[in-house]
Design a protein around this nucleic acid. Structure first.
Lengths: 220, 220
DNA sequence: ATATTTTTAGACAGACTTGTCCAAATCGTC
DNA sequence: GACGATTTGGACAAGTCTGTCTAAAAATAT
């Protein structure tokens, strides 16, 4: 009879790639908590449930590990943004309600989630020192996000739902408004309740529609 | 005849308090560049033009130095915000132009300047780890700023310039809009041109007034 | 000019990290 | 079950950093 194993310290055997992921996740967490200089490889290894040597085997170097972390996080974020953008209400029924729901999804899947927090923190702590690290993201991330969102708004305007001069500006403003009420909570890592998320999105969309909504939706 | 001294390495004798300030400024700079863990006391001393021992004489401890830095910066920022808030266009002539000018001042004096950058960086790098450090600022800073700005907007609304349901929400949205176009530049420490500042402010105010401006200014 | 305080430069111990090396243990595969 | 690859734990050198201590130099006040 095999001895029982305490479930929370259970040594689950994991594959090579699973360990790679686990290391990157732990590293992201520790880098964000302690900053690059303050991050301790022993701690990362422990948090990943792996020996220190394994960390070095996989990524070779602390700086290299940071590169891997940034690559992984930005890829995940880009994917999340892409997926969420695909749920934009192109053919809205109730424009306000649909945009609110979209804004909530945006916050949940791209900004308030684990990866969003990581990227934000890494950007602020290392963005200025290692601009090259984020150069790729800067081109593939915000620029394309803004353009994509601007295109959606432009289409809504063309369909008579909105009245917009500059869709690019409107897109950036939409995103800024959506985050207006959450900034403080996110800086201090407070957990944001579903309720707060909805209120923030509602406030944002109401303001956005007051500014850019047509007085009456276009008649079909 | 006293020998000439190269002006940029000139050893300017400075008072006790001047050195205290110089140390805090250098520490703020280094803490922001390198993060708390990565900051090197020797480097801070060198950047302050002071021996390392003097740093220890004044502030005793690295952590203590961080506390002093945060206190100094938050005090300066609060003062700057207060001063700028006092220039709010309470009796506007051209509401759009006046609000744009106010937004530009806000960005220049509170957000894009040296102290604004320092506070932002310190908040993001150490805010989650030392929440107590910023607890005081959190109460005296954003909360009061929002309330004060909200009161101004409420007065403008009462005077017939604006149509606002919730002045607090509107105040936060105004600030969010004002920063919408500058976020990326600030993260990467890019210098923001006067031009960019004006455009950002103009975009923000136009959107804000589309949302909350009265169709026609109140007749006198 | 003298006495007191502050500042400086350098040495120093103690602690901590990174990255390497290695032999034993473990895992996955045939 | 046997083989090769991966992982582990621990030891290790080299370097960095903090914070203290000292005696000499400089600045300030009297």
């Amino acid at each position: 009879m095999t001895p029982a194993i305490a479930p929370d310290i259970a040594v689950v055997p994991r594959s090579h790639t699973a360990k790679r992921l686990s290391i990157i996740d732990a590293a992201a967490c520790v880098f964000c908590r302690e900053g690059f200089a303050g991050a301790n490889i022993d701690l990362i290894a422990a948090e990943a449930g792996v020996s220190r040597q394994t960390v070095y085997n996989h990524h070779g170097d602390k700086e290299n590990l940071l590169v891997a972390v940034v690559r992984e996080i930005t890829e995940r974020i880009n994917a999340g943004v892409f997926d969420t953008l695909a749920t934009f209400p192109d053919k809205p029924v109730d424009l306000e309600a649909d945009l609110v729901a979209f804004a909530v999804r945006l916050n949940q899947n791209c900004i308030c989630n684990r990866d969003g927090k990581f990227l934000r923190k890494l950007l602020h702590t290392e963005g200025e020192r290692y601009p090259a690290l984020f150069a790729g993201w800067r081109e593939d991330g915000p620029a394309k996000t803004w353009a994509a969102l601007a295109a959606r708004f432009a289409r809504l305007a063309h369909a008579g739902w909105l009245e917009i001069d500059d869709p690019d500006v409107a897109a950036r403003q939409f995103l800024a408004l959506v985050n207006a009420d959450l900034q403080m909570a996110m800086i201090f890592g407070d957990t944001v309740s579903e309720e707060q998320l909805r209120t923030a999105a509602t406030n944002a969309v109401r303001c956005f529609l007051r500014a850019y909504g047509k007085p009456r939706p276009a008649a079909i």
